[in-house]
Nucleic acid binder design. Structure first.
Length: 260
DNA sequence: ATGCCGACAGGATGTCGA
């Protein structure tokens, strides 16, 4: 089963690119982030024509996550638990039936957190604390789980073109990197890193300052696998070519193949 | 040192992202 994640930066702006990408790569499951539309505004019909059913947790103008699946999604659950007054649409979870078992999938759009030293950064850290609590609870079922999406965290210096340039950024703060490591310490595996050792694997290139042309990217879109999912990991990939297409998102799709 | 680009809402230009 091929499972992909993509921060589309507005599904309306990315509809043509998304349909082309789906036709070319034929993923079984897709987690989308930053769809930037309400549930009603999501072009579900376009994807249904390509054989996908859609679960949407939308929001007007900002955020918004979705899951597309060739098989009917079950137990669809919007929103990250353990929140008190969080009205951002950043988390959507569902069950996907596979040939060899059921898979739990979450589409994640974690907060950016800039600038540091503000309530935005503390919101980011609080959000990740909630994610860790929930991720830990999910482990109790001992089932294959994929927590994938835009984590807005650069894990290591080798995951960005110039670590110095990101020193004061929320994406590369020690507390942010610790939040990702905490998930790994719970037992989740960074799927791309498990399959690829080379540095400078990027998933995001800023629109500004010719970052794409100069390959000044960062790796912030991640696939985290529970032990039961990691045991079935075959390979992963990054659809880097999508950044060079017409009207690209600033993020590219990241995918993994699971034997499930 | 700052903005660079792109999307949004709204109907000009400010906000947000990373």
């Amino acid at each position: 089963m091929r499972i992909a994640t993509w921060n589309v930066n507005s599904i309306k702006a990315r509809l043509v690119a998304a349909k082309e990408w789906l036709a070319e790569t034929a993923p079984d499951v897709v987690c989308m982030q930053e769809i930037k539309c309400t549930d009603d505004g999501f072009p579900a019909g376009e994807f249904e024509q390509l054989g996908y059913s859609c679960a949407v947790h939308g929001q007007k103008s900002y955020n918004g996550v979705a899951i597309l699946s060739r098989r009917q999604l079950e137990d669809v659950s919007p929103g990250l638990p353990h929140g008190n007054s969080d009205n951002h649409a950043r988390y959507l979870e569902a069950l996907v039936p596979g040939d060899k078992g059921i898979l739990r999938v979450a589409s994640i759009y974690a907060p950016n957190g800039n600038p540091i030293g503000t309530e935005k950064f503390s919101y980011k850290l609080d959000w990740h604390a909630r994610l860790a609590t929930h991720a830990n609870e999910l482990l109790a079922a001992e089932e294959p789980i994929v927590l994938m999406g835009d984590y807005n965290i650069i894990p290591e210096p080798e995951d960005c073109y110039d670590p110095k340039a990101w020193e004061m950024d929320a994406l590369f703060q020690p507390e942010s990197r610790r939040a990702l490591r905490r998930l790994e310490n719970l037992g989740y595996t960074d799927a791309v890193r498990a399959c690829h050792g080379e540095p400078q694997l990027y998933t995001f290139w800023d629109y500004q300052a010719g970052c794409w042309q100069k390959n000044r990217g960062i790796r912030i879109d991640h696939i985290l696998l529970s032990p039961q999912a990691a045991d079935r990991l075959v390979t992963t990939g990054i659809n880097k070519h999508m950044r060079g297409r017409e009207r690209p998102s600033d993020h590219v799709p990241v995918w993994c193949e699971l034997d499930i």
